[in-house]
Design a protein around this nucleic acid. Structure first.
Length: 262
DNA sequence: GCGACAG
DNA sequence: ATCTTGTCGC
């Protein structure tokens, strides 16, 4: 399955369209945002305390070998309270618009493993995904795909924009220079025909190039944008950053171990 | 044919 | 994603 033919991508498209029907783009969770004032609508609900992040790091010499990472951070302290890294084999190549078919399976496996071996009290109440949500050619990016697979609220946060519905890099760059003059700040991205698909987001003063945020599953864009500033110590949100750092560290460990063996 | 192209 | 040196700044 190295070079997916047109039949394969058509099947993937059908899969995306089918799963998309089950997608929830409103807030659909039991917790409340800690920093927001507790109102009548929040009564009795626990505050958000655990935010997860997932990422994959690859071996330079073999694109099919990677380390998948899942971390869970305490919302208030940003301390890592759970970590799991695992070497994985990826048979599907990366294809723009089909990232989920390459990365979602190993990430979902990590989450299912966590569910099976730990108490629900440590599971992430929200998961940040390195990639797009509905800001996607068919409105169903990795964040949506993974969120639906593991049934956990997800938000997609990508570092580069993927042109969708008239939202090009040029457009995003222009909007950023005009509206993201301070940090943290954001600006909604409206497609030519599909309405608001996401937002450009500048987390810190140092972050010149904005991040792209879009709904994954069960979390509204509004809620995502309220929460992100609290997780933005650096340009990349801490949960994703920690998953990136730790998976990359394991790749190096494994590569070095292999080097001294030969 | 040409440009676009999340990770 | 990954390949890479220097370089600017705290």
């Amino acid at each position: 399955m190295d070079e997916p033919d047109e039949t394969q991508t058509e099947e993937w498209q059908r899969h995306q369209h089918a799963m998309k029907k089950r997608l929830i783009l409103d807030d659909s969770f039991h917790w409340r945002i800690p920093t927001a004032a507790t109102g009548p609508l929040d009564d009795g609900r626990p505050a958000l305390t655990r935010v997860g992040g997932v990422d994959l790091s690859f071996f330079k010499e073999d694109p099919s070998r990677a380390v998948a990472a899942l971390v869970v951070l305490d919302f208030d302290t940003l301390e890592v309270v759970y970590e799991r890294c695992r070497e994985v084999e990826l048979n599907v190549p990366y294809m723009p618009g089909y990232l989920a078919f390459r990365e979602a399976p190993p990430l979902a496996a990590l989450i299912e493993d966590m569910k099976a071996t730990s108490d629900e009290s440590v599971w992430p109440q929200l998961l940040l995904v390195d990639g797009n949500g509905i800001l996607h050619p068919r409105g169903f990016g990795l964040a949506c795909h993974l969120g639906l697979l593991v049934d956990i609220p997800t938000v997609g946060v990508s570092k580069n924009i993927h042109t969708v519905d008239g939202i090009t890099r040029e457009v995003a760059r222009e909007l950023a220079s005009r509206h993201l003059t301070t940090a943290p700040s954001h600006h909604l991205l409206k497609g030519d025909t599909r309405g608001v698909l996401g937002a450009i987001y500048r987390p810190t003063d140092d972050a010149t190039v904005p991040l792209i945020v879009s709904c994954g599953h069960r979390v509204s864009l509004d809620t995502a944008l309220k929460i992100l500033p609290h997780l933005s110590k650096h340009r990349v949100a801490e949960p994703i950053r920690q998953a990136d750092i730790r998976s990359r560290a394991m790749v190096r460990r494994l590569a070095n171990k292999a080097a001294e063996t030969e």
